[in-house]
Computed example of a mutant assay.
Amino acid sequence: VLRFSGAAGGPLKLRSALQHIEVVLAPLLACARPRARRPNLLVCVQPLFAGLGGLLAGRLFRIPYVVLVHGEELALLHDDRLLFGLRRRLQARVLAGAAAVVCNSRNTLLLASKLYGIPDTRLQLIYPSIPTAERASLGDTLAGLDSSARVILMAGRLDERHKGFDTAIEALPAIVRAMPEARLVIAGPGDPAALIERARELGVADRVLFTGVIERSALNALFERCELFVLPGREVDGAAEGFGIVFLEAARAGKPVVAGRTGGAPEAVIDGETGLLVDGRSPAAVAEAVLRLLGDRALAQRLGRCGRDRVRREFDGRRQHREFDRLIQTLVGHTPLTREGQ
């Protein structure tokens, strides 16, 4: 079994175009080996462009391929009109030709079925997993932040509007009025200019810290340092959080989560048990949930403890590895494809 990624940068950059070509060619080159050395199955971690390589290899060499989907790409490209919808049509063909489409949440599975017509017999639900422990080293990431600050953490790509960075900033005035020591720390790549300007307009610019891109160990330390994690996702132009591994990372650190009630987030965060689900479009709802957790340490600790126990029990990789191994053995052995529990 060979696994191919498809990560690359923006669609108009030469480097990105070369990466796309390389990713498409990689499975073809692997399958062009002598028959005894060819893989029996290709695993493509994205429909585009890794899955396109799998589709071509499957057509030329009759080798089956599996595609992993994460939710956002299904909705974003479904209404894509660039180049007459070329990417949308390519993605649809990749998904239609796959021996199995592995979805990271039930919400993603429903999108694949509804938007692309993938039959249930080829849809597989396998939740993500994370390491149960990772190195944490904060360094000077929070330099200048008072040690008494009550840190509310967010993390993700700033250009992904559905994650709700703007909603959290709009909720901040109400939060700091009730809890003056509260500080919002936002970690992740992207241009923060628009968010900084909005915080300035609301008079809370001095209560927000943007770390930019940081090392994994520093992000782990931020999860340890914060009191709660917030990502009030909502649907924007059809896109929503596919699942939200960051919710698991917060839970691993024993921290409660405030998440938007949309996409796959309700599968990552159990409302009232590991966190609080809110309307991600409402700054008032976000502020209310954050203040509830900051004001009730016993509740916050209970939710954090339950979240950590759930990660260790359900998302440590053992179940996921077992389910994926079963899928691979099924496809390679040509036995009927069923979901676990059926």
Rank of each mutant, 00 (worst) to 15 (best):
D206L: 05
A171T: 05
Q301N: 12
R313Q: 13
V332L: 09
F165V: 06
P47R: 07
R305L: 15
S105Y: 01
G238I: 00
R198I: 07
A289K: 07
L142S: 03
N104S: 11
E249Q: 08
C103M: 01
T121M: 15
T167F: 10
A149M: 00
E72P: 04
E227A: 00
K13W: 09
R305H: 13
Q342Y: 15
R216E: 15
E197M: 07
G238D: 00
G272T: 04
G203C: 01
G71T: 04
R15C: 11
G190D: 05
E134R: 11
I196S: 11
A240G: 02
G97N: 11
L28D: 08
T262N: 03
E201I: 11
L76V: 13
R59K: 15
H321P: 10
D159F: 14
A265R: 03
L115M: 01
R37L: 15
F324S: 09
L90A: 10
I328T: 14
G58C: 06
V257K: 06
E170I: 06
P266Q: 04
D159N: 12
R89I: 06
R161W: 09
Y65I: 03
G71V: 02
L276T: 08
L25S: 09
N107F: 14
D271F: 09
R292N: 06
Y127K: 10
Q320V: 09
R252K: 09
V101Q: 02
P283C: 01
P64L: 12
E181P: 02
V45K: 15
R62G: 12
E72R: 14
V246Q: 02
A36W: 12
I328V: 15
Q91A: 11
V176C: 02
P131D: 06
L125V: 05
N220H: 07
A7V: 14
A57F: 08
Q301L: 15
V332R: 11
L56Y: 12
L145M: 01
L293M: 00
G242R: 03
R326A: 11
K114R: 14
R59M: 11
G156P: 00
E314W: 13
D279C: 07
R339M: 14
T141G: 03
F223L: 04
V24S: 04
A182D: 01
F4Q: 06
A253Y: 02
V286P: 08
D237S: 13
V102I: 10
V213N: 13
S217V: 10
L14F: 13
F61E: 08
S217M: 10
E170W: 05
A99D: 13
R35P: 11
A168P: 09
Y127H: 10
N107D: 12
L83Q: 12
L109Y: 03
G238M: 00
G295Q: 07
A240Q: 08
S16Q: 04
L41W: 10
E227H: 08
G238W: 00
V69M: 05
E224I: 04
E215S: 14
